[in-house]
Amino acid sequence: MKKLLNLPLLAVIILFSSCEKKITDLEFEKKVMTEIFPDLIESTCIDIRLFSEPPPIIGQIIYDSEGNHIGIDSIKGTDEQRQKLLDWKNLKIKLERDTSKVIIGFDPIIRDSSKDLKEDFKNHFKNSKIFLPKQKKETEYVFDFKNIKLNNKFRLKNIALFPKNNKAIWRTKYNFIFGGVVSFSRIQFDKNRQFGVLDAAFTCGRLCGQGTRIYIKKVRNKWIIDDIEGTWVS
C-alpha cells in the first residue's frame, strides 16, 4: 500500500526532472545572463567623469641629470596648487553624489567570443570540464535587456540608436550624460552548469577602453561573479 501511495510523488519528481532537462543550452544561457546582468554592468562600466583628469600635484617636480622624472618636492608646494587639488577633490565628491543617470550604449547581440576561452576556463576552475556542444546551431542571439533592473547609476540604450559611424559616436553632443559602449560575449559553461566564463568590452572613447574576462559560478543556487581579469587596455 505504501508503495502505491508513493507512486504519484515519484511521477511528479520524474515530470519535473524531465522538464528541467528539456531546457535548451541557449535558454539556460539566457537565463543565467539575465540573472547576472546587473552585476556585469556594475563591474565593467565606469563613470569616465571621475577619471578624466588626474589629481593636480603639490610641489615641484624633480628631474635627474638626464631629464627623467624622479619625484616631487612637496615642501615647495604653492597655495595655488593646493587650491587646485581642493577644487579637484570637491568636483570628484560632487560627481560621486550626482544622481544623474549615465547612459551606456549596449550591443544586445551576444556573440561567441573571438578568443578560445577553454584553457583559461580550465586554469581558473580546476577539475572542471568546459561544455562544448557537438552541434552548435546558434553563434549569437539578441538579448532582451530592457526590463532588467540595474543596481547603479548606469542606464542602457541600444547601440543601434547611436550614430553608426564609430567616430560620430564620440563626437556627437547628446542631451544626456554619455558614458561609453559595453558589449558581452556568450557564456561558456562546464558540463555540470556550475561555472562559466565570458568576455566583456567597455569603450569610453576612440582611444579609451578596456577588455575583461569574467568568471562566474553558482553559489547557493545563485550566479555570482567569481573573478575578473583584464585582457586589453586602450
Score class of each variant (00 low, 15 high):
8 P>M: 06
119 E>D: 10
221 N>L: 12
47 D>M: 05
158 N>Y: 00
203 T>M: 11
128 S>I: 00
27 E>N: 10
99 T>F: 08
50 L>K: 09
137 K>M: 13
164 K>H: 06
60 Q>H: 11
4 L>A: 12
114 S>D: 14
40 L>F: 01
63 Y>D: 05
105 G>T: 07
139 T>V: 12
80 E>W: 01
204 C>F: 15
224 I>K: 13
115 K>G: 01
230 G>H: 07
67 G>W: 11
16 F>G: 10
56 P>W: 06
13 I>V: 15
75 I>T: 12
83 Q>V: 12
61 I>R: 13
190 D>H: 02
38 P>H: 03
158 N>I: 01
107 D>F: 04
6 N>H: 08
62 I>D: 04
115 K>L: 04
9 L>F: 14
133 P>D: 05
202 F>K: 02
14 I>T: 14
10 L>C: 08
188 Q>P: 01
67 G>R: 01
221 N>F: 07
195 F>C: 07
215 Y>Q: 04
128 S>H: 12
63 Y>I: 06
204 C>W: 12
11 A>S: 14
177 I>Y: 08
2 K>H: 10
159 I>E: 10
201 A>V: 09
152 N>E: 11
87 D>L: 09
226 D>F: 04
229 E>I: 01
74 S>Y: 08
94 K>V: 04
204 C>I: 01
155 R>T: 09
152 N>F: 01
174 Y>A: 02
92 K>H: 15
1 M>T: 09
21 K>W: 13
155 R>F: 02
227 D>N: 15
226 D>H: 05
47 D>N: 15
63 Y>K: 10
205 G>N: 04
113 S>M: 03
234 S>Y: 14
5 L>E: 15
130 I>R: 02
56 P>S: 05
5 L>I: 11
172 T>E: 14
2 K>V: 13
153 K>S: 13
6 N>D: 13
18 S>F: 13
